[in-house]
Every structure is written in C-alpha cells, then in structure tokens.
Nucleic acid binder design. Sequence first.
DNA 1: CGCTATATTTAGTAAATGATGAATCTACCG
DNA 2: CGGTAGATTCATCATTTACTAAATATAGCG
Lengths: 145, 145
Amino acid sequence: MSASRRRAFVTSVGDLLASWNLPHATGRVYGLLLVTEEPTSLDAIAAELELSKGAVSTAVRQLDSWGLAKVIPQPGSRRLLVEATGGIESLLEASHSRARTLIAALRDGETLVSPGPAQDRLRDVIGLFAGYVDVGSEILDRYRR
Amino acid sequence: MSASRRRAFVTSVGDLLASWNLPHATGRVYGLLLVTEEPTSLDAIAAELELSKGAVSTAVRQLDSWGLAKVIPQPGSRRLLVEATGGIESLLEASHSRARTLIAALRDGETLVSPGPAQDRLRDVIGLFAGYVDVGSEILDRYRR
DNA sequence: CGCTATATTTAGTAAATGATGAATCTACCG
DNA sequence: CGGTAGATTCATCATTTACTAAATATAGCG
C-alpha cells in the first residue's frame, strides 16, 4: 500500500469531485475512505489528510448527507467511525435533478418564442436533455437492483 | 413577449448553468440567446442584461468555445452578431469527459486496496459510473444523427 | 492618414467559499 | 457530579472568481 500512490489517488478524486461541485476537502475525504479497508475515525482522517478537525467534521457530514459515506456511532464512546458507501448514485441523482429543473425552465421558455427556427432550436435542446435524463434514470433504477 | 417572463427565464437558465460550472453571466447570456429569434449584437446583450461590455465579450467567447453559440462576423463592419446553437451537447460531453477521468482514477485505485469488501465497493462505483457514461454517449451519438 | 465604431484586454474590486483554530457542546466514565 | 474525549459550531482569514470600468487594440471609412 504505497503511501504516495494513496496520496495521489486521494488528491485526484478530490480534484475531480470538486468539478461535481463538492468542496475538495470533502472529495479528498471520500477518496481516502474509498481506499480504506476498515471504518476509520475522524481524527485518523484529519491526521492523514492534514486537515483540521473542523473541516473533517463538516466533510463527513456532507458525505453522509449525500449518501456517499456512512457514519457509525460506537456504543460506549463518543467516537465516530466512517466508511464509504458504494452508492455514488446520489451524485448522479443530484445531477439529474438539476437537469430536470433546467428542462422545466426550458419548456417554460418555449412559450416565449414564436414558432420558427428559434423555437425548433429550443425544442431540440429540450429533447436532448430529456432523453439524456431518462436514460440516466433507467441506469440508476437498474443499478438499484 | 412579456419582458418579465423573459427576464425570469434568463435568470433561471443562468442559475442552472452555473451549477454546470459556467459563470452565471455566461449562462444568462445563453438563456437570452435561446429566446432571441434573430442573431444579436454584443451591445444589445449588454443592454438587456445590464452587463458590462467586457463581461459580454468574454461570455460570448466562452459560449462559442463550448459550442453553445455561434459568432457571426459581419462583412463591412467590426460588429459581431451572436446566436445560440441548438447543440448543448458539448455540456454533456464535458461532463462525460470529467466522468471518464474519474473512472480512470478509480480504476487506478483498484490496485490500492486488497481484495475484499473495499475492493468490491470500489468496483461497484466504477461499474455504475462506466455504465452511465456509456449510455450517455450513446444518446449523444444518436442525437448527432 | 486620422476618426469612429466596435471588440478585447487588463487592473482593480467585491462577493463567495473553504479552511482553520478556538470555543463550545455533549456523551460517557470515574 | 466533575472530568475527559471526542464532535460540532463559530468567527475569522485567505483564496478564488466574476464582474466592472477604463485602457487598448483593430477594422473600416472618410
């Protein structure tokens, strides 16, 4: 388990998730969790990633709320353990929900332009997006089973 | 063509494209172009959206480079006209390319964890993402014809 | 060759966001 | 109850980023 490759992995996952609109400390924590076999503590995360405890705390709660990590309270101690969940679905779902909002806005805009090339263009965009979202949802459904 | 609905449309498209990592002035310009029947000038855009000329200039060039708008130079004048293109494909393509980079990083990470639940989890994530991207590309291909 | 109309670049600014470190809170244990 | 080990919150700082306004560049026209 080469430490430098671990670090490289963590930062690249962090960078990439940042382009998915996650703060990149959060993305790095997720990256670390993905290559960590056992549930791990917030302090251990902070130590390995050289992040403040506060940052780790908020990152973990974000990951939890996105369904990307599971927080496991330990009976008999205040310490929390965290582990990645497989389900990165929620990221995709979030992206769908944004796309759907966009589609709705575009549909609304359809009534703003009179028939002609401009309206066709708008319809085109709507069609592509809608198809895209439909297929994506299908994949997600299939994945859930 | 109600001006207030136009404005509402423009800002919502702007807001939404901002979540796709476009600056939202750029998104608003795109929104405006989508509901504008004829090619329009940078000054007209600046006036309607109350943006500075500089902002419009960079927004338009961004849209152009993303393939979301076409810039039409006018012979006999320095003035440029701009119109939206239907193809919002490039946005989806960009999102795919990010996803593919992520997939590559994850595949690389696979070798960092020893066989077991952690590796399975990672494989799971990879599989979902890969399937998602594949299907999306298929839609794009179909759309291009 | 200027002059004008237009686009682009640049320097500066304001706002948003993320991270930190300290202070605070809370659960557990003696 | 008091103390301690932990997590969380909060105020602050730093960075980034998008926008503005002004300066600059360039194309066309007299």
